[in-house]
Design a protein around this nucleic acid. Structure first.
Lengths: 199, 199
DNA sequence: GTCTATATCCCGATAGAC
DNA sequence: GTCTATCGGGATATAGAC
């Protein structure tokens, strides 16, 4: 049972995952249908279910590969770097994720919004990482290298503000028009964080 | 056809809308079932459909009453008030909405996240209001009363940061534990905005 | 106005030929 | 590996008695 992994198998599997990402991120788990995903992947429905045993299995496969990607920029926060530069770099990296992986952001948002029924397994690891990095930021604050702020709410600010541009894309575009909002968003976030963090 | 509106009718209608808010906000439109809503409202499924012609009609009724509530604090932004105090008051009011109406926030988030198929009618009015208030903030910035920032991204920051605590509630609690996060969130948001806006 | 029973449709998953 | 055909469950909505 150690999958041989033909080239054609690999190709179909990734086509399915890409199509499922499109469909799940737009319609949510319940709202998505296997038929939609199969059509988007260029396969028939039974053929799709030859590669994945169920609709839920595809969803799990997507989610489990997602959390790591999502937390990577935070992992890179360096306790020995320059505090403000490190936090700005983190926020910029997170904003790049929203710009480059909006579907993944919306998949994640859909899941958390509905109580994270299939994701809550990942929360302990998330908490561990956030606790660790929050402690780094707190140390910076206590040593006076940055302003005295709550590190957890700072992290929430960065999450909320960056993910907003991916998750609420239609609303952002309804207000701003269809020009790329990311350059100005990056500039604004930079301004906010510099002001917030300066001792 | 001008509904007589018996007391019992009013009571059932509001019970249905409250129950539907619970269910839709947690499971999304497709994920919610009429049976769930009926049970939560203490009615049988056909009886529920005596009050509303369809599942979609309930959803529409909820959404259309929602946008007004959601935009009220922004409407109150007074061009003749003290700039920084006005913006802080707006942000605090919006955060109160997240605390007091988390289900409404999640209903809205579910809808926008999925492309706002049933809400896009409201976007023009939303844009008009945002444009108007952004112009107020821009005028404040140009007169040097606040820092020179982009008013639209400032509004997005306030939306994103305040709604985050309602929409991503499970994630916030997974990180912070189950204590009420709002007092510290309010304090933090206040700090961020004062720093951001000071000329 | 409220119920039981049911029509009708859609969806996930399977059977089985090729 | 891929297809057509179909099963079986569950959902929305309706029929019709009370």
């Amino acid at each position: 049972m150690t999958k041989p992994a033909t080239r054609i198998q690999q190709k179909n599997r990734t086509a399915i995952l890409q199509a499922a990402l499109d469909v799940f991120s737009q319609y949510g788990f319940r709202g998505a249908t296997v038929d939609q995903i199969a059509t988007a992947a260029g396969l028939s429905k039974p053929n799709l279910l030859y590669y994945f045993p169920s609709k839920a299995a595809i969803h799990v496969a997507l989610l489990s590969s997602l959390l790591d990607l999502w937390l990577d920029p935070l992992r890179d926060l360096d306790p020995d770097g320059d505090p403000i530069a490190e936090i700005l770099k983190y926020a910029a990296g997170k904003l790049d994720l929203s710009r480059d992986y909006p579907r993944e952001s919306r998949l994640f948002a859909n899941e958390v919004l509905q109580g994270a029924p299939r994701l809550s397994d990942g929360f302990p690891a998330l908490k561990t990482l956030v606790d660790e990095k929050a402690q780094v930021i707190r140390t910076w604050a206590e040593s006076g290298k940055i302003a005295d702020i709550d590190p957890y709410h700072l992290i929430f600010l960065i999450w909320a503000q960056t993910q907003h541009y991916a998750d609420f894309d239609v609303q952002v575009r309804a207000v701003l028009g269809h020009d790329d909002p990311y350059p100005k968003a990056a500039e604004f976030l930079d301004h906010v964080l510099r002001r917030t963090l300066t001792p």
